[in-house]
Nucleic acid binder design. Structure first.
Lengths: 203, 203
DNA sequence: AAATGCATGTAACGCGTTACATGATTTT
DNA sequence: AAAATCATGTAACGCGTTACATGCATTT
């Protein structure tokens, strides 16, 4: 068993929703899971073959009138069982690498204004995502109102929303700090300290 | 230029603080940057050689009485210039992969109680980290009170603190949802909706 | 005497992305 | 006629971790 074979479980997992082709899987990753997961074709197609060889998924050659044939895969009961086992294991913490924070950490070496630009760009990005999540939330709630998946999917969205909001608040703080009156001065007037020790939000 | 050669810049960056050996670099990553960056020996040593070959760092064979010789590397002005250029480029968004959220997303397939265990474990983890960051914050503020790096380093910590707090709040929400009275029921009584649409915190 | 820490490195492996190859069908 | 979309796949490459190899010095 490979130490981080999460790819195969991501695929098995998506196939619990409905039988799909590799192409469909890719779309689902890009359109729905992109906030916390993604897979490329280079991963998906070989992995599907491997899963089929192990009997965890079954492939059906779906012949379509006119169009090229699709290879549609569906989860087998063995596959579902395998997935269930994996879901019971404590999630592995993902390796953390944040290029943005690395640049902040080294901010002292940056040219004047560079950090501010980065922060503003990041904040705009997070605000765009936040707006998107809220809209997606509404449509998911409507379209899957009766789905037993709903509460879990909404939890994922809620996570995204909370993270975006926290990031936006941090961006505001960061802007105050990197564009503060002082170009590279003594520590701010209690600013940083207060920020760090008090509860984060209150809108 | 490689598309994500952030490793070399992480190393150049740490060498702005002071000249270091590969061994020292590793320790710094593990002890200070671990929240947002890490490198293994397998990356550090070869990269250092590469950087030296390009004239971006200079190696000094520090002969020590008794102990084995250390290869200490220091940043050259060319290296500092290269770093500065990189700091000016917009940070690349890191590929997002969150095994935890993947399991939540597929929660419907999980055995009863599994998700709750995961969430509680995660919350405890985040609470431990939060406490740690607060302590580290105090000591950094004291020990580097006059360093021009202080404000940038505190910003990184502040980011960590905000993320930990947001994660903890989300964990509380998640526990309510996954351990709600209903085993796999109709959507909760407005619970999820309210959560998602209101401001996140109020402690 | 054994274990731990300092210190430097290499080799093998796995995961994942990117780019490439192919080709049909549908839309503009 | 060209461009976009559907659809499946492979090959090359890069990044990063893990495990291994070595050896001295210090602590237990």
């Amino acid at each position: 068993m490979s130490r981080r074979g999460a790819t195969e479980f991501a695929i098995l997992g998506l196939l619990t929703v409905e039988p799909m082709s590799g192409y469909d899987l890719r779309k689902h990753f890009q359109e729905s899971l992109i906030y916390f997961w993604n897979e490329s074709y280079g991963q998906i197609y070989p992995t599907l073959k491997g899963l089929a060889r192990q009997g965890l998924v079954a492939s059906i050659k779906a012949e379509q009138t006119g169009k090229r044939d699709r290879q549609v895969y569906s989860l087998t009961s063995k596959g579902r069982e395998r997935l269930r086992e994996w879901l019971g294991l404590p999630p592995q913490p993902q390796p953390i690498r944040n290029e943005f924070l690395l640049k902040i950490f080294l901010g002292r070496e940056a040219r004047d204004g560079a950090l501010g630009d980065h922060v503003r760009r990041l904040q705009a990005e997070h605000e765009k995502l936040l707006a998107m999540y809220l809209i997606i939330g509404d449509s998911v709630r409507r379209e899957h109102a009766k789905s037993p998946n709903l509460k879990y999917w909404m939890l994922c969205l809620s996570h995204g929303i909370r993270m975006r909001r926290a990031e936006i608040e941090w961006c505001k703080e960061a802007l105050r700090v990197v564009e503060g009156s002082s170009p590279n001065p003594e520590p701010q007037e209690g600013n940083v300290r207060a920020r760090v020790r008090r509860p984060v939000a209150r809108s």
